[in-house]
Design a protein around this nucleic acid. Structure first.
Lengths: 343, 343
DNA sequence: TATGAGCATGTAAACGATTACATGCGGGCT
DNA sequence: AGCCCGCATGTAATCGTTTACATGCTCATA
């Protein structure tokens, strides 16, 4: 019962050829003769040989894998994105490394190390907060492994990224509300420093403006995308003297938290308030009421980011293709309705 | 602007020592003199040297990473588990490779290759359907990289796994319902072939029995854990002539789908039916109504599985520790209530 | 019949680390 | 003084591939 893995040398000996021939047979079969090809392939089959990735990678100076840096792996929002990434990587034989970078002080170090240690040929970062500039400082690490941001994007406006039309989506959301007759529309934001937060606020304002409504600071409630921040926002809303008749939430989870808290207070959606979310996570369609929301193509984001990353790795991306923006679409369900008369 | 990574040789030259000394300085600093230590460390700092993982791994015959095999990465259920896995791996400097194995015919091959190619030092498999026996056949691959199952478990009852008390949790669920006065309790199952499905049905029956209730086949509706299967189940329920007053769902998502469909039909939860889920995913507490459910410690599952895997990798697991079963607990919220009088 | 092209294959040098073994040196012991 | 031990370091083998280069063979061409 041998537990040691067979090496290319074992195969070579069994087939009676050199290791070079075995390697060639496996990587470019048409460079060896028919005769030796079957010899080698038989030997491979009978030994169960599979090339050792570490040796191969060392020699070829690759790692055959990419890294995904997420601020918080437990956030289900990322699962579809990661699934999209894997859909592209899998068939290529690329491994997908996931890491949580959180916001610990040594997170930066972790990233620098990953980059520098040649563990990955490229990176997809899902966290706009990560300061990519320190990689430039540190010996131009980006040159070794390209980085593309997805969903969120770094402050450097030229870095490759695949994002979504956040301002357009937000505009659509408030225009939908306005079209239904709402004039007093509030917004629950994301966390203050987040780029998405800013973009969605921008879209919110633009939407208001395009409908002739004026922006009112007192209708903004700060959140952080989480369920619980939605709940907290609901408490603020309940305590308002002159409540907005519709709320645009920067995430579906905020919307759920909001609606949930309101339900406990006997406030009905959409009869008493209309709610719109952002993301269209799976459960949105099955919430009670089914949530009207701005749908992000999360799988596609993952796929597009990965494809771009491969383009960068292979050195074949034109500058103008480096910041694609995917479309979102408003999906209207049951959490929005015209404002009630007595409001 | 050098873009090539510095090697250990660059550091050695700069410090005026041999590569062996550099390596020693980095891996066991107390084996070199104070004097050369600072010399080397300075050189490391000024070159920005980070050891190449591929070379290190090749030499040490490790990969410094583990693989996670999931049936479906887009399923948010796994996100917390993966987060737990990363929490243990990160600090150890281990990489976490995620792969979707799906149920394509070549999935098995994919797994065999991952195992054999020395890409990972061990694996955590989240899919009970994966037939681990083929790894034994193929040259005893398990010997090279241990495998632990999490959540689900393989048919081989001796393989390492960390699971949860599925039958106990299910029992608790139905006992809670029975205690509230329900006598006609139904169950929406998971997919037929799944081990969890069987375990939860077993617990369901045991719970019934322990309360003196009798199991009735016609009260079982087949689902597959998904939101949509919950919706479908609701339609079956609506069409029943003599409806159960309470349903135990094999997953929270089934429960959401179920409740959501019922709401559209004007059926209220818990007034008209009581519902219990399983999993306690994040949104459960914020659903309307907040879902009573059996809570699984998903992060802990990930952590425990990883710790066990490391134990196996280091060869220090006693046989009796190989199949720990974590506790679940019923968390009672608002989707359950005593049956209404007119039922 | 040389000659060269082209093919199939072998030989051996990388890739960049770790580590067994060798070396030299200083100091404590008898 | 002689011996040995242990410390700090260096030398070089090794991990398992890929691939540049060398080799030898066959065949078409001049």
């Amino acid at each position: 019962m041998r537990t040691e893995a067979p090496t290319i040398l074992d195969v070579a000996r069994l087939a009676g050829v050199s290791t070079a021939t075995v390697s060639r047979t496996l990587s470019s079969p048409d460079r060896v003769s028919e005769q030796t090809r079957v010899l080698v392939l038989d030997a491979v089959a009978s030994t169960g040989y599979v090339a050792n990735e570490m040796a191969r990678n060392l020699r070829k100076k690759t790692s055959n894998s990419i890294g995904v840096l997420a601020p918080d792996l437990s956030n289900p929002f990322f699962s579809f994105i990661i699934a999209g990434i894997e859909q592209i990587c899998g068939p290529r034989g690329f491994g997908v490394f996931v890491t949580e970078i959180g916001n610990t002080p040594n997170a930066k170090n972790k990233v620098v190390n990953m980059l520098a240690s040649a563990r990955a040929d490229g990176f997809i970062v899902l966290d706009g907060m990560l300061d990519l500039s320190l990689l430039k400082a540190r010996g131009n690490l980006e040159k070794r492994a390209p980085i593309v941001s997805a969903c969120e994007w770094p402050s450097d406006e030229t870095a490759p990224s695949v994002t979504v039309d956040n301002v357009g989506g937000s505009m659509q959301a408030v225009r939908h509300l306005a079209a239904m007759g709402h004039t007093k529309i509030g917004h629950i934001t994301g966390p203050k420093e987040n780029v998405l937060t800013a973009a969605r606020i921008k879209g919110f304002k633009a939407g208001l403006e395009s409908c002739g409504l004026t922006y009112d600071d007192s209708l903004i409630i700060e959140g952080d995308f989480s369920l619980d921040s939605g709940r907290l926002a609901a408490e603020k809303w309940l305590s308002m003297s002159d409540r907005p008749t519709a709320m645009f939430c920067a995430s579906d989870r905020e919307a759920f938290g909001f609606i949930s808290r309101l339900a406990k207070a006997g406030v009905r959606v959409p009869e008493d308030v209309s709610i719109i979310g952002f993301d269209d996570i799976e459960v949105a369609a099955f919430f009670v009421p089914a949530l009207t929301t701005v749908s992000q193509p999360r799988i596609d984001i993952g796929r597009a980011a990965t494809q771009m990353l491969f383009g960068l790795i292979d050195g074949e991306i034109a500058p103008e293709d480096k910041r694609p923006q995917l479309d979102v679409k408003l999906v209207v369900r049951e959490s929005t309705a015209p404002p009630s008369q007595d409001a």
